[in-house]
């Protein structure tokens, strides 16, 4: 049994917001890339919408991360070693917070360029068309996968109860971020559908959402099993947190129903909202319950 005597870092609203926004930013970039590379020519418009989402979210990420610091004006110390006489850059591959700072910066560059290229008035085909464009998108999508997932690893690379007792959080955050992104994009594309976007784009996004929800469900089960073995399941589900987890599981139902061919749940206007609420609630449950 794992025993913990640590103090909580009091990572609260700002950090939960960051984890939520990072999941969606990375997830939307990945889905836009998949639509561009493997989809139909008509998917170009949905992909364009997908590339518009990440950059504003990255700005939000940078803002909340900075505000969460005790000394926000020293945010650059994440990247540059300010130790007198040391100089140079900070990079610790074994500290996810250190790697994540660089990854977010790089992803910011990728999402910014893709955002510019996706603006309605951007020249098409832009400089990122062709092989160079595909390579750019793939590199950005890999960073997107990292941004959407490393936050879970960051929690685990600690000595906190629950977080450090499981290996599942990175995978869980990724699956849930992709699920939320698919729901968000489907909703955006559907709104555009009336104005001419192909209907099947958002329907295929909902199918993808179903698959992602299935992977998320798998990781939630693995999460419970792993913390159960460590002896800290009681911390994760005590009191109201059990209700929170039941709601998280309920939020997966509309997306899973898509896979079972039961349309209507996510098609209802509130469906994507429900999925997004589940994505947020899961992060709240993981982050806050372990610190109480």
């Amino acid at each position: 049994m794992a025993e913990h005597f640590v103090h909580p870092p009091h990572w609260e609203a700002y950090i939960v917001t960051y984890f939520f926004a990072a999941g969606l930013a990375g997830g939307c970039y990945v889905l836009a890339t998949l639509l561009s590379l493997t989809g139909y020519p008509e998917d170009r418009e949905p992909a364009r919408l997908g590339f518009l989402v990440p950059f504003p979210l990255v700005l939000l990420c940078a803002l909340v991360l900075t505000l969460d610091l005790g000394r926000p004006w020293l945010f650059w110390h994440m990247l540059v070693n300010a130790t007198p006489g040391a100089g140079g850059l900070n990079f610790k591959y074994w500290s996810p917070m250190s790697v994540g700072a660089w990854a977010l910066l790089l992803f910011g560059v990728f999402s910014f360029v893709s955002f510019l290229g996706a603006l309605p008035w951007a020249r098409r085909p832009g400089p990122l068309a062709g092989t160079a464009g595909r390579a750019w998108m793939i590199a950005g999508a890999l960073l997107g996968l990292y941004i959407a997932s490393y936050t879970g690893v960051l929690l685990s690379v600690s000595n906190q109860p629950v977080w450090s007792d499981t290996w599942t959080l990175g995978g869980l955050f990724l699956a849930s971020g992709l699920s939320g992104s698919a729901a968000l994009l489907a909703w955006l594309v559907r709104r555009r559908a009336a104005a001419g976007s192909p209907a099947t784009s958002w329907q295929r996004l909902l199918t993808a959402d179903g698959y992602f929800a299935l992977i998320e469900l798998l990781f939630i089960v693995l999460f419970f099993v792993s913390v159960g073995f460590a002896g800290t399941l009681g911390v994760a589900v005590r009191g109201a947190w059990l209700v929170a987890w039941i709601l998280v599981l309920a939020s997966l139902v509309p997306a899973l129903a898509e896979l079972g061919g039961r349309r209507g749940l996510v098609h209802a206007g509130s469906g994507p909202l429900l999925v997004l609420a589940g994505v947020l609630l899961m992060r709240i449950a993981v982050v806050i319950s372990a610190q109480m």
Partner: peptide, 21 residues
């Protein structure tokens, strides 16, 4: 363990995403 979990999730999700989209 954490990054291994990410790899498994990413591999499954990419296959699922490609199959769906």
């Amino acid at each position: 363990g954490g990054y291994l979990g990410v790899l498994v999730s990413a591999a499954l999700a990419m296959v699922a995403g490609i199959v769906a989209l």
